[in-house]
Simulated scan of single mutants.
Amino acid sequence: MIAPALTAALAALFALLLFEQYARRRGPYQLAWGLGASAFAIAAATEAIAAASGWSEALYRTWYLGGAVWTAGWLGAGTLLLLARTRFGYWYAFSLAIAGLVTILVSRRLEDPSAGPIALAYSLAAWITAAIVAWRCYLGDARWSRTAITLTALLSVAAAPLVAFTPLAAPGYAVDPTTGAPVALLLPAALRLLTPLLNVSGALALLIGALFSVYVYMPKRRVLPYSSDPTQRGDELLFNLAIAPIAIVVNFVRSLPDTARAWRVGTLNRRVPATALIAIGAFAPSITDSLNRVGSTEWYQGGKLIGAALLLAGFLVSVEDPDELRLPLIGAPLRVLLRVLRGAAPSGARGGPRRSRRG
C-alpha cells in the first residue's frame, strides 16, 4: 500500500506543478504532461486504495483508463508538443510504426476472434498517422505534432465509454495472484489493444524525446555529420535519415567528455540533467512492467515509484528560478529545498547559464 500511495502523491505533485506552470506560461506541452501525470496519479491511487480495502469494479475501470490507456499517451504527447519545432517528428513516426507492429503481435496472443481485425484497424491508423507525421516533418511543418496529438486524443476519447460501459464478468475485476496487481484479462480486445498502441508510442516518445533533448542541449562534437535538411535531394535525405541514428550515437558518445567538463565548471545547460532524469523515469516503469508480465514481480510497484520520483526530479532540476514554484502550501518548502540543494551542490551541479523562460 505504501509504494502506490507514494507514487500517487509524487505523480499528483508533478501534475500540480505542471498545471501551475501552464497557468503562467501557457505552453501546450505543460498541459499535456499535466494530463498524463494526473492519469498516472489516479491510477496509482486506485492501486493504493485497493491495497487497503480491496478491488472493486469502479476502481478497476478507473485504473485501466488512467493507467493503462491515458498515462503514457499523454506524457508522450507533451514531449511531442515540446519538440514540435524540431525534426523529432521522424522519431515519433518510427515510434508509431513500432506501436502498430506491437499491437498486431499482442493481438495474436488474445483468444478473441475479433482481435485480429481490430489490431489491423488500429495499426493502420497508427501507420497512416506515422506517414503523415513524417511527411509534415520532412516539409518542416511544425503541425506534425498536431497530427500526432489528434490520434492520441481520438483514441483517448474513444476509450472512455468503452471502459465505462463494457460489461465485466464477476467480480468485475482481475488481479495477478502473485502481486495483486490488476490485469486486463476481463476486458475486450477493442480495449486491450488500445494499450500497446498508446503506451508503446507514448513511452517511446517520452524516452526518445528526453534523450533527443539531452543530445540537443549537451556540448557536441559532430565527428559523424548528417543532415535532415528537406531541401536536399531525395536520395541524399534518405541516406542521411538512415545514418542519423548511428551518427547521433557516435556524436553522443564522443561528446560525453565535453559534457562532463561542462558539468564540472558549471556551464552545462540545466536541461541536460533534467531530461536525463526524465528519460530514466520513463524507462524504469516500462522495464519493471515488462518483468511483471514474464513473472518477475518483485519490482512492479517499485518501478512505478522510481519513475514518478525521477519524473518529478527532472522537472524540479529544469526549474531555472525556485521562485517559479508558487503552489500554495507546497511551493514554499520546495523553494527552500531547491535553494538548499543548489547552494550545497558543486558548481557543476548548478545547471549553467540561465535560459529564456519561454514555454
Results as ranks from 00 to 15, higher is better:
L96Y: 02
L206A: 14
R222Y: 12
P171M: 08
I98Y: 04
I98C: 11
S95W: 08
L154M: 15
A119F: 02
A158T: 00
S123L: 04
L191C: 06
A134N: 02
L193H: 09
A125L: 09
D141M: 10
G140A: 04
L168A: 01
A142K: 13
P161H: 00
E111A: 05
C137H: 04
S156K: 06
Y173N: 10
L155G: 04
W135R: 12
P117Q: 10
A121I: 14
L186R: 08
P113N: 07
A99L: 01
P117Y: 10
L155E: 05
W144D: 03
L105T: 09
T152N: 07
V157D: 01
A131C: 09
L101I: 14
Y215P: 14
L139W: 13
P117W: 08
I149A: 12
A190T: 09
A93K: 13
Y215I: 14
L96A: 07
V106F: 05
D141G: 00
P196G: 07
L193N: 10
A134P: 02
V163T: 08
L96E: 02
T129Y: 01
R143L: 12
L211W: 14
I104M: 11
V102S: 03
A134V: 05
T147V: 11
G100H: 10
S213F: 06
V216T: 15
S114Y: 10
L207N: 14
S114K: 12
S123K: 12
R136I: 03
G100S: 09
G116I: 13
T195I: 13
T195P: 00
I208R: 08
V183W: 04
A115Q: 08
L194I: 00
P117V: 14
V214I: 15
P219E: 15
V133T: 12
V157M: 00
D141K: 11
S145I: 08
T129R: 00
T129C: 00
A148G: 03
F94V: 05
